[in-house]
């Protein structure tokens, strides 16, 4: 079959269409659904950051929750102590988290496999708990982050969650556009070369360490943005918002999306938000005991995870594509 060439123009149209769809959705859904939509947008950015690091550059991170935490705290602290506008807080979050990612990447570039997994895991457990030690980080209660009210010109009926939905999905769309371009650029190709075969990549003149550190830096920057967006949707930044479970569910989302294909990122993000919802509906229908509703989401996610690893290790999209080609 003749393969249709997808140009950047087609992709741009695709992004605009998704944007339109989100716009229409935001006008029809209620407040709670807007909040969930915003959460999906946050997960999209966070999962994209993991896919960039693991799927394209071949480095493992079990600690992306910690990077999100850095982004969120940076945004909140910039707002509280420097009183800067919200969008500068976002930029600050990206910059500071990238800087941290660069430092972490310098260490990570020397590590492989289980060592890297262990380091990032320890980071995910350790970093959020610092907030309890220093009072300016707000301790267990955390600190607030206020992304502001929607402009008055949008009218009275425009709720705050709808506004958050707009901010997060617009940011997510822009980020995704940028990421997919980046992955198609020289850097993306370099990362994939390093992932596929380090020795061959080195022989072709790629500097391994530099490429890996760059991937970590970029991925951290994206995660920082996701953190700032997360802070926007929940209005608050506290250690309890970034437990180890967050890092694990982001990794889960990446696997459900297919860790090697950026295009599947929506699948994982939607799954992470939709599964608890569906599970509670199912549990309400056949409520056998009280503990079922609270346990079912975790159970379904875990089972899906194992099924994905077994049936579609390269992700649902790749699976579909390979079946089509054959």
């Amino acid at each position: 079959m003749h393969k249709r060439h997808v140009t950047n123009k087609h992709r741009f149209i695709g992004f605009v269409l998704i944007g339109l769809l989100v716009y229409i959705l935001s006008n029809t859904v209620d407040e709670w659904k807007s909040f969930q939509g915003a959460t999906i947008a946050v997960y999209v950015v966070a999962i994209a950051s993991i896919i960039l690091l693991t799927g394209y550059s071949g480095q493992i991170s079990l600690g992306h929750g910690a990077l999100l935490a850095i982004g969120a705290y940076t945004a909140a602290l910039t707002q509280i102590y420097l009183h800067l506008p919200v969008w500068i807080c976002f930029v600050a979050a990206v910059l500071i988290t990238s800087l941290f990612g660069a430092i972490l990447g310098l260490a990570a570039a020397r590590l492989t496999g289980p060592y890297l997994a262990g380091t990032t895991l320890a980071l995910a457990v350790g970093l959020p708990s610092i907030a309890n030690q220093f009072s300016f980080l707000g301790g267990e209660q955390g600190i607030s982050f206020d992304a502001g009210w929607p402009p008055l010109s949008f009218g009275e009926a425009f709720t705050q969650y709808k506004w958050f939905f707009w901010i997060t999905s617009l940011t997510a769309l822009i980020m995704m556009w940028w990421i997919q371009n980046l992955l198609r650029s020289r850097y993306g190709r370099t990362w994939r070369a390093v992932k596929t075969n380090e020795v061959a990549a080195e022989l072709s003149g790629i500097r391994l360490a530099r490429s890996k550190v760059l991937a970590f830096t970029v991925s951290a920057g994206i995660a920082g943005m996701a953190g700032a967006l997360l802070a926007t949707t929940i209005n608050n930044v506290s250690p309890s918002a970034f437990p180890l479970a967050l890092s694990f569910s982001l990794a889960t989302g990446a696997i459900l999306s297919g860790v090697n294909t950026l295009g599947g990122v929506m699948i994982g993000a939607v799954a992470l938000v939709a599964i608890p919802e569906i599970a509670s509906l199912v549990a309400d229908r056949w409520s056998g005991s009280e503990s079922v509703p609270s346990l079912l989401p975790d159970f379904i996610v875990s089972v899906l995870l194992i099924l994905t690893v077994f049936l579609a290790p390269k992700g649902p999209i790749e699976k579909f594509r390979s079946r089509h080609v054959k």
Binding site: F248, A251, S302, V309
Partner: peptide
């Protein structure tokens, strides 16, 4: 090694 890690995480869950 990412896939086995994820599989064991799923088993843990």
């Amino acid at each position: 090694i990412f896939l086995p890690i994820i599989a064991t995480l799923g088993l843990l869950g």
